[in-house]
Nucleic acid binder design. Sequence first.
DNA 1: GTCTATAGTCGGATAGAC
DNA 2: GTCTATCCGACTATAGAC
Lengths: 215, 215
Amino acid sequence: MRRYPCGDDTRRRILETAIELFAHLGYPGASTRTIAHRAGVSLPALQYYFGGKPGLHRACIEYITEDVRARLDPPAERAQRALADGRLTRAQLLELLRSLIKPLLEGLASERPQSWALFFARAQIEQNDALDAIHERIGGRLVTLLTEIIGRLLGEAAPPEPRVRAVAIVAQIMLVGRARPMVLRSLGWPDFAEERLATLQRVLWRSIEASLGGP
Amino acid sequence: MRRYPCGDDTRRRILETAIELFAHLGYPGASTRTIAHRAGVSLPALQYYFGGKPGLHRACIEYITEDVRARLDPPAERAQRALADGRLTRAQLLELLRSLIKPLLEGLASERPQSWALFFARAQIEQNDALDAIHERIGGRLVTLLTEIIGRLLGEAAPPEPRVRAVAIVAQIMLVGRARPMVLRSLGWPDFAEERLATLQRVLWRSIEASLGGP
DNA sequence: GTCTATAGTCGGATAGAC
DNA sequence: GTCTATCCGACTATAGAC
């Protein structure tokens, strides 16, 4: 773990600016000049802190995944313990499911200006390292947990079914972050302001619950 | 409607090459040089046929959306007529829903090499014209139809609910095309070869059906 | 109509002063 | 450690020959 004596918050500022610009302009479109300018540092500072453009991008991935992982970890551990403990009622299983889904939806939809979700979406399409990092730190564990819960909710079901359903549920939630403009257009909404987000959350949850056999 | 006396299939070849490269390298990453080279034409030919890089990209969008629209039109019109005709049983409504969803899934997942889906995904994030074209020619009508069908299936439900659910269903299906690498990794599948695609299709449909109250 | 050659712009990276 | 000034490569677009 390196220390950045004089530049710890400079580093932060560069990272957040870079995420914003990578998200809005794409990796090739966001020039190091623009990033440096908007972050209020000189061009060689990027070289100094991150070794170059690819290094900066990797650092952005780390910065984001680390944050999301931290937010997702507590409910994930709680769920894991509960599942290990033994028999759970249907209501308890649904509650576990909900506790895992809720922070994901909130985190993707409202917490950060939306740049994170866009960065996410772009990285997933453009870069392979990003995919690895996301899957390793977030996606893999989440899907495994959801699969376990769904498997119990569905009772006996052929092996791939719970996993496919878990992925489909994550997809429904991710769509808020990833396909935001398309979704807003289709819904005729201007944004995901609080009440609308709450509506979306409620409807999605009702749909998921129903797809698993109802409450 | 313009004619391209000597270059109609040249135009086609350029378009398909361009889609492939835009999809894999992104708009800024796919240089006109590379596109021209891979298509077996000279650099100025792109200028001649499409007026420049932006024009070429617009033409790609048109080429794809026109194809998808053509494939989606027959079931959409059939559904529209059926809905106008009057009372439909639950089974009939579900069958309509399925007839709209099926070509979408097949088209996105298998028909074209996957480049189309990637092009789609990129364009949706990067370009606004693409979003307009897609919504106008495909998404808007599809979501409206699904909303109508779902509204009837759900009986009385608050206004936004059927529409939100329609969008969520489209999202689940789109995920096959858009987040393909992520989905494959999460499922531990190498590809969407026939049996696996069929499994996916079956599970998704069962889940959708259940979320709307079962068969 | 289709090509070769080139102009003009902008990108990432670095050398060297402070 | 952080800056200014600069290099070199790659891109789009166009001018003009055939």
